[in-house]
Design a binder for these strands. Structure first.
Lengths: 200, 200
DNA sequence: GTCTATATAAGGATAGAC
DNA sequence: GTCTATCCTTATATAGAC
């Protein structure tokens, strides 16, 4: 019982410390030597815990994405009206993405993965819990829109400002725009009201 | 005169054929051997044309992003009212992104580049021409919104559906949603009208 | 301009001692 | 469980012939 916990200690530590490495440099950009050095082990030791590099990466992803999305989802199980739930979800999502930089970068790397099987497996594992509830909500919100596209748009409005680090170099940039509250408010306002109508 | 053209032939061919390689697998995922094989040369020959791999990559990016954004921008120079220009821009942008898969993937890879100097250089080189005109337009469209955030949102609504290949595995997905016309229309509708108001 | 050959390093992975 | 030592492959890059 205790033994299992002890046994897993190193393994969990490896996973935990690997997250920022893979988030920063991606699968190809991280070597087993890099990981080993970060933990304070030799590369050989890693192969006691993981069969190969791919398995380590997969386990790192599972470790990172096990709980986070379900925390998000919990907000949507409530009985509040759709708009209230939307605002809560957007607020929480913005907070998550702003707080945990690794989370979003791992997803960005994942999206570029050319390995179709691995890509799909991760997509379903990670993104299903993020997207599905938004999709359901989108269907409730406004039947004029394609729920899939609307869900996509909601996620895009929140996550894109954090993905696009290059906007730092673009006109009108201010550091406050990185605050989750600012991003969330902008997304909510835009979704709520749209733009002022053309003077047609 | 003619000589210059002939001289540049191989070089341009290398750049042209490298684009899809770097778009698919990113900087670390492409070896000089890969590039050489794609052209039908030996790796050594590449070093006659480019000092090193980084220079090749930089030149590939410059090659890919030299003209595309300025085609987009041309739409925005017109004297039409802001809304007309917005619709034209969104339509064209969606078309570009849908047609040229390499374009977007190269940007996605760029965003994950941890090399700050290279990242910034590319960002300014590539994205300035895409973002600046949208930012100007955003300022004209609706003064209630932060122009920077609004410009970001416009780009997000159009590009995100194409970046997020994982949406293929999400509920409500239909192949038509990959058509630029569908994405553009959705973005325009959403921006124009927003969602139906909450029954508050 | 492109080749062959090769230097040099980095990376994944394993064997066997402790 | 973790180490040392090492194998094998792949990668960037260069030297010098053609």
């Amino acid at each position: 019982m205790v033994k299992t916990t002890i046994k897993r200690k190193t393994r969990d530590e490896i996973l935990e410390l690997s997250v920022p490495l893979f988030a920063k440099d991606g699968y190809d950009g991280v070597s087993m030597r890099d990981v080993a050095a970060a933990i304070g082990l030799t590369p050989a030791a890693l192969y006691y815990h993981f069969t190969d590099k791919e398995q380590l990466y997969l386990d790192v992803m599972a470790h990172e994405f096990r709980e986070k999305p379900s925390e998000l989802t919990s907000v949507l199980k409530g009985l509040e009206p759709p708009w209230v739930r939307l605002e809560m979800y957007i607020t929480k999502f913005a907070q998550l993405v702003a707080t945990d930089k690794n989370f979003l970068r791992l997803i960005q790397w994942m999206r570029l993965d050319s390995n179709v099987a691995r890509h799909q497996k991760l997509a379903e594992y990670v993104f299903k819990d993020i997207f599905d509830p938004v999709h359901e909500l989108a269907a409730e919100l406004d039947s004029r829109y394609d729920a899939h596209m609307l869900a996509m748009s909601i996620i895009a409005l929140v996550s894109f400002p954090f993905e696009s680090t290059i906007r730092q170099f673009m006109p009108g940039y201010r550091p406050e725009q990185e605050k989750p509250s600012v991003v969330a408010k902008h997304a909510i306002d835009l979704l709520r009201a749209g733009l002022s109508k053309p003077a047609s």
